[in-house]
């Protein structure tokens, strides 16, 4: 456990844990409303923010937050108003954001694509004191929203039309989800990188679904997986000198595969337990009586 003696590793682990909690916490609502790739889109848009941060020599984290929140709001607006060519508009936004980032960072004094790389794929060892402060504040916001409003967000993500009739401010909640997702992207940016953010939002949720039947359990398991893989990936990268972002994402996928394999016998055991609960004389297999009763007669 010697890595705990290094300040940079302490910062890296703190950032990793916060990402492990927040990314699946937001991701579950995106998966529920079948917008699993929204995080990916926001990640692309955030690159313009990073570029802008370099160009104006302000903090790339806060700049990326501002730009990706703006991008998320535009995406929600496109979803409301853009009936037909919505997907085309989104594509413009994504790739415009990505190209804008590359362009801006090359315009910045002393900027190069090498700087961009650390944001694209994460760079845990360079997480600074001010980065940690920003990550902590942003993560607190994300947790406040995803836990505090879980019933409301669940209702809106499950059935928007019904949620409207329960009087929930559907548009405001949709917007809040989009903003929270954008904030999460920038929280995770330093850890797994903008191009891999979405994996940490979606894959732990998909993995948790293999075991759970309820939303609450899926939430809890997904966060547990998220924390496990981010800590595991960070420590692995310390000892093995492999890129942490990629390690974390590969571990998450491994968790998904392991749980999928595990799920089949688990489901079988559940089914057996359910069969055991069935009252005697109600066998699992159909028993066809030797003689047909009057009740079986089918009139035509």
């Amino acid at each position: 456990m010697d890595f705990l003696n290094y300040a940079f590793m302490q910062r890296a682990l703190l950032a990793a844990v916060l990402v492990g909690i927040t990314a699946p916490a937001v991701g579950i609502y995106l998966v529920q409303r079948r917008q699993a790739l929204m995080g990916d889109g926001i990640g692309h848009v955030a690159m313009t923010g990073v570029g802008l941060g370099f160009l104006l020599s302000t903090s790339p984290v806060w700049m990326a937050t501002a730009v990706s929140v703006l991008g998320a709001i535009v995406m929600e607006l496109i979803r409301w108003y853009g009936r037909t060519r919505g997907d085309i508009a989104l594509a413009m936004l994504f790739y415009g954001g990505m190209a804008g980032g590359v362009m801006l960072i090359n315009l910045a004094p002393g900027g190069s694509n090498a700087n961009l790389m650390s944001y694209l794929f994460g760079s845990l060892s360079t997480v600074s004191e001010s980065d940690v402060t920003a990550i902590c504040l942003l993560a607190a916001f994300v947790l406040l929203v995803t836990l505090g409003l879980r019933r409301q967000l669940f209702a809106v993500s499950q059935d928007e039309e019904f949620a409207r009739v329960t009087g929930l401010p559907v548009r405001a909640l949709n917007l809040l989800t989009a903003i929270t997702a954008a904030v999460t992207v920038t929280v995770a940016m330093r850890v797994v990188g903008l191009l891999l953010v979405s994996a940490l939002m979606v894959v732990p949720v998909a993995a948790a679904q293999q075991l759970s039947r309820s939303f609450a359990a899926t939430f809890a398991i997904a966060v547990a997986i998220g924390v496990t893989v981010t800590i595991g990936g960070t420590i692995t990268s310390y000892y093995q000198y492999v890129p942490p972002g990629a390690t974390i994402v590969l571990l998450t996928i491994a968790a998904f595969i392991a749980l999928s394999v595990l799920a089949t016998p688990l489901a079988r055991r559940r089914a057996r337990a359910a069969a055991a609960r069935r009252p005697a004389g109600d066998p699992a297999e159909c028993a066809i009586p030797a003689t047909r009763g009057a009740a079986d007669e089918v009139g035509v």
């Binding site: 998966v31 529920q32 409303r33 019933r151 059935d159 019904f162 009739v165 329960t166 039947r213 939303f215």
Partner: peptide, 30 residues
């Protein structure tokens, strides 16, 4: 809105994440 109960026309209202019967019904109580 609490004075109105609504049943939409739907074959399924399942989202992308599993939810229990209790969780779905609870949404109506909000």
């Amino acid at each position: 809105w609490s004075r109105i109960g609504y049943v939409p026309q739907r074959t399924t209202a399942a989202g992308g994440v599993p939810a229990t019967v209790t969780e779905v019904v609870s949404a109506g109580r909000l």
